Simulated assay, not measured.
Amino acid sequence: MKPTNLQTKSLLRISALGFALAASASFAQQTETFTFTADLPSNFAYKAIAEYVPAKGETCTVPGGRNTAVGYNMKWRESYTPNSEIAIYRTVSGCLLVISRIKLDINSSYGKERGDFGGDFATVVITNELEEKYKSSFNEAGESTFYGHCQWLFRTSGKPRILRKILDCKSAEANGELDRGHPFSAYTLDQLPGKTVKMKIKLAGTERPAIKDTWVKVPDGWKRCMGDNFEDQYAFCFGNHEDFSTFQMVDGRTCTIYPGCTE
């Protein structure tokens, strides 16, 4: 039976309403955001890359996977801000994408040259479903915090034995107790809209050698073992706690003890 004009108009209204609701839902999805921020030690900065994949139910792909990630604080030395507003959904090449992970670099400079910095990493995972025991929670203010503990490790490098520093960061509990692995947090998509995810990092008050049996602890700091000779790049102590070498600080000073330089 052919529909009447009234029935046709009603069907058109219903169709238009359905389209409007679908478009509204899609727009709402694509405009949802959350804030990522960090509470870091002095002279620290984070660099973040938010990675996106096709949303659940989507069969589309992005040609070459291009533009499926967004970077924040990529030039952290020149311009850094602790707060990053991150979109939960993005549309790229007509494909609706959803955030799946935030890759985080924790960086800090210890000298003036561009290479005088140490870094380690942290990760935030975001998925549709997650077992409760793995899911991070939010407080009444809409903030979720995960913790890390970093420590500087020092070593010497090259023929002049220049001091280099490595940043080592571990996951931690709120009370400071260390966990295994790197700083990490996980959420489901429905937890995030309008919320704040914070990474809080504490820096150890002491440094330690990066390689065992290469430095000897003395009352005022650490002394570098000589090894076979000054050209010995490994220079393990092997029980010889009498013969030490000088080393060079990143500022060019020749030193005999770290961190005070002179005894």
Rank of each mutant, 00 (worst) to 15 (best):
E132S: 11
Q29C: 06
G181M: 06
R224E: 14
H182A: 13
D39C: 02
V53R: 07
P3N: 04
N175C: 03
K170G: 00
P219K: 08
M1A: 12
Y80E: 03
E263C: 05
F36V: 15
S137D: 15
F230Q: 14
S185I: 00
A25C: 10
K56D: 13
I88N: 04
P259D: 03
Y80I: 02
Y52W: 04
V98H: 03
K223M: 13
W76P: 02
E131D: 11
Y147K: 05
D243I: 08
S157W: 10
A50D: 10
A141H: 15
V92E: 13
N5W: 01
N73R: 08
F121C: 07
Q29R: 13
V125K: 09
L192I: 12
T33P: 09
E231Y: 09
S15R: 14
K212H: 01
A186I: 00
F238A: 06
F138R: 01
T68Y: 14
G239N: 13
D179T: 10
I99A: 00
S245F: 08
G148W: 03
M199I: 07
G252I: 09
I126D: 04
G119Y: 12
P54F: 08
T246L: 03
T35A: 03
N240S: 11
F19D: 02
T33D: 07
C225R: 03
V53Q: 07
A141K: 15
L17A: 15
F247L: 11
F121W: 11
H182W: 11
S84H: 05
A45Q: 03
T254H: 05
F238C: 10
I49Q: 07
Y80M: 02
T81Q: 15
Y72N: 10
A55P: 06
K103V: 07
S24I: 07
L203V: 02
S136T: 04
T214W: 00
Y110D: 02
S42F: 09
L104A: 09
N5T: 09
G118Y: 01
